[in-house]
Design a protein around this nucleic acid. Structure first.
Lengths: 181, 181
DNA sequence: AAAAAACTACCTACTGATAGGTAATTTCAA
DNA sequence: TTGAAATTACCTATCAGTAGGTAGTTTTTT
């Protein structure tokens, strides 16, 4: 991907985090970059293609920042902190949580990319729980992973909406205790 | 509120649940009702006013359907079921979770109405926990309520996106166990 | 010279909103 | 009780703004 295409995706991610899928437009991105909106069509044929690129890039960066669950001593705490870090940057929620809420109006391909992000998160948290709680049944691991992912996505969304980062901190703290026993 | 205004709000709620704040327009609602978009401005001066009415109406109906926490033997299970019922109707997520994700582009007054909905939910779940777990500390009650609300909002959002209602069922089941001990 | 990356100049579709008008109903004072 | 005034609930017509997208052309880089 060219440098320009990269920059375009970066702008789109920021705009989506600020107001959802309808908050980024070819025109606005072009204006900010000092180019014309038609030029963006050279890099991404349409909004759907850009939407997919944006989702996959967010996915990549999220997990690149996270590292492997096996490389952390307390991976759940690390996972929680990555959400707190995401909220701190721009005071905005997780981009994929925002897009998930708008699923009904998203192109199928974007929705599918979001589905992959979700699955990848669940697998990560499950691996983390297996490491931290070797005694837990597989069922308990899978169910708890669902709760942790859902709670953090819900918490970061409502914390950003109400402008109360402490709401996420509260949920994060309780989730840590939940896993600690 | 007149019957027409009521109908307008109903259509708006359905459309928002299907695709977010940008998925309802004066024109579309008018078309479905067989009137003109200008007529909707008679009942609601602008989109912001309609947005607030919609949020408050959803709030009202949600808690009317829920009843008082004190009136249920197992209020948490009842609360979980209300989310499962919401997902079952239209296969769509909680309207307020959807709007919360788009907070960045919402008019302030709508955001504030959403904030009230959130607080009301937290108070309800706290009351439920006090009833079910009289032995718990106030801190534990408040923190657990945050987790339950966030987890359900996150789960219903991702379940609707991935079209996997079982994801919500899984989270709901685990939350019940969490409270049961 | 050729490929890449941008440009100009449009188009169609849709948005929320406003101005001005009309028929039917309701309120209220003489 | 009746006529004037006001209100309700809609209408037509139009506005400026923004959206995504396209065809054809020019500039820039290799």
């Amino acid at each position: 991907m060219s440098e320009t295409a990269n920059t375009i995706v970066g702008h789109a991610i920021r705009m989506i985090r600020q107001g959802g899928y309808n908050s980024f437009s070819f025109r606005k991105i072009a204006e900010e970059m000092g180019i014309k909106s038609a030029s963006i069509h050279y890099h991404f044929p349409n909004k759907e293609a850009l939407g997919v690129a944006v989702t996959e890039r967010y996915d990549e960066e999220f997990f690149a920042g996270l590292g492997a669950a096996e490389d952390h001593e307390a991976p759940i705490a690390h996972y929680v902190e990555s959400f707190e870090g995401a909220l701190a940057s721009q005071g905005a929620a997780c981009m994929c949580g925002i897009l998930a809420a708008e699923a009904g109006q998203l192109p199928e391909t974007v929705r599918e990319a979001l589905g992959r992000f979700t699955e990848r998160n669940l697998r990560w948290v499950e691996a983390a729980l297996r490491r931290e709680q070797p005694g837990w049944s597989e069922e308990r691991v899978v169910d708890t992973a669902s709760v942790i992912f859902s709670a953090l996505e819900g918490a970061i969304t409502f914390a950003a909406m109400a402008r109360k980062p402490e709401h996420l901190a509260q949920v994060g703290g309780q989730l840590r205790r939940l896993v600690a026993g």
